[in-house]
Design a binder for these strands. Structure first.
Lengths: 208, 208
DNA sequence: TTGGTTGTAGACCGATTGGTCAACTTTTAA
DNA sequence: TTAAAAGTTGACCAATCGGTCTACAACCAA
């Protein structure tokens, strides 16, 4: 409607009031890290305050209550995972290479030194059955990933490098199930090197 | 040392003092059910009191603190699982049939109407990375199961029905990883029927 | 009958939980 | 210069947490 009074471009979107003294990205990463290591229930607000360095009031004003902060970290993790997968796939030329690269990226969660596994899986296991909203967030993410993999497999089926006697979506789900199992098992005794060795068998089962 | 004064045989091991008014098996099953549904942290003593019908004093006197009761339910679940596997395998004649039966038994956790999954996996995911004692209990169980499966596969390799170009222990771990992934995924959208269909692909990958 | 032992019942405890709030500070807009 | 807006700080809150303890009841052996 009315014109701006100043000639200042939108490049500096200074907000009203006192500016924040913290970096939102750093704080969210710290909170994500805390939730990832200990889970939702076992992470107290005191833990989050210590992890982020913020005071209680600032945390609540900026991110709402514990569950809201948790959901923010969850969406953040899933968005990063999605971006990482897209970037990984974009760098590979063939369906076989894409599949290998995707599986290798999935198994990256097996490398964590503290056995923290995959945040999304941890959340699904802890909260999925009780919390429909969280279950939907994680479930939709898994659906997206599986569709990406399904497309890769369908492409490979068309070119004859992947077996065509089974649905592409079933083969994608098969590989996803394997990856989820490997990451879950890596929270215990499964070593990343063995996980990657077993992954070869899983992918071999998809080849024509 | 000293001889018994009464001629009563050991058949009736009446204990000293006031007898318990509850059935220990029922109470442990109720506690197991509560922990299984909600996880360790999210299950409060109030939940356990409601689930078992016992009063606080009785619960603590009979089973110790929350963690101790939890460990008792965990060992109970694992012992039952082990017994179920042994019984399942005993009824099958060939290595192929044993493997099918084992996998089918594993995927029984996918059938739970409330998506509660497998107690052992849930516990490993929630507590494994932080609690060495619990991690060992669950880890040892997985080791035992994997050894059973390894023996089956080695037998099948010897008779030529399973592929021999990979270690039996790797093939066993491969199948275990798949089963764990399927059960984990069943806490979300994976249906039991699809899980069993995918399991065919997993077992096919082991056949010669 | 009495003393020892175990189980039941529930009041009670300090600590911790997630969450709110008021006083104060720092910024921008008028 | 002043008012509104947003952020910071930490005291404060009721509720819940896991756990203890005392009074009492029910059983056995002596």
């Amino acid at each position: 409607m009315s014109a701006r009074h100043t000639a200042t471009p939108d490049s500096a979107p200074r907000r009203l009031g006192r500016p924040r003294e913290f970096d939102e990205d750093e704080v969210l990463d710290a909170a994500l890290d805390a939730f990832w290591r200990k889970g939702f229930e076992a992470t107290s607000m005191a833990d989050l305050i210590e992890a982020t360095g913020l005071h209680k009031g600032s945390l609540y004003k900026a991110f709402g209550d514990k569950r809201s902060l948790f959901l923010t970290t969850l969406r953040r993790y899933l968005a990063r995972g999605h971006a990482k997968i897209e970037a990984t796939l974009a760098g590979e030329p063939t369906p076989e290479a894409k599949l290998d690269a995707w599986m290798n990226a999935m198994l990256g969660s097996c490398d964590a030194a503290d056995n923290r596994g995959c945040y999304a899986i941890n959340v699904e296991v802890e909260l999925g059955p009780h919390d429909p909203e969280i279950a939907k967030v994680v479930g939709d993410h898994f659906d997206e990933v599986r569709e990406l993999v399904t497309a890769i497999i369908a492409e490979g089926q068309a070119s004859g490098v992947f077996r065509a006697d089974r649905d592409a979506s079933d083969l994608a789900e098969f590989l996803a199930v394997f990856a989820i199992g490997a990451v879950t098992r890596s929270k215990g005794k499964l070593e990343a090197t063995q996980a990657r060795r077993l992954a070869r068998s899983a992918i071999d089962a998809v080849l024509a």
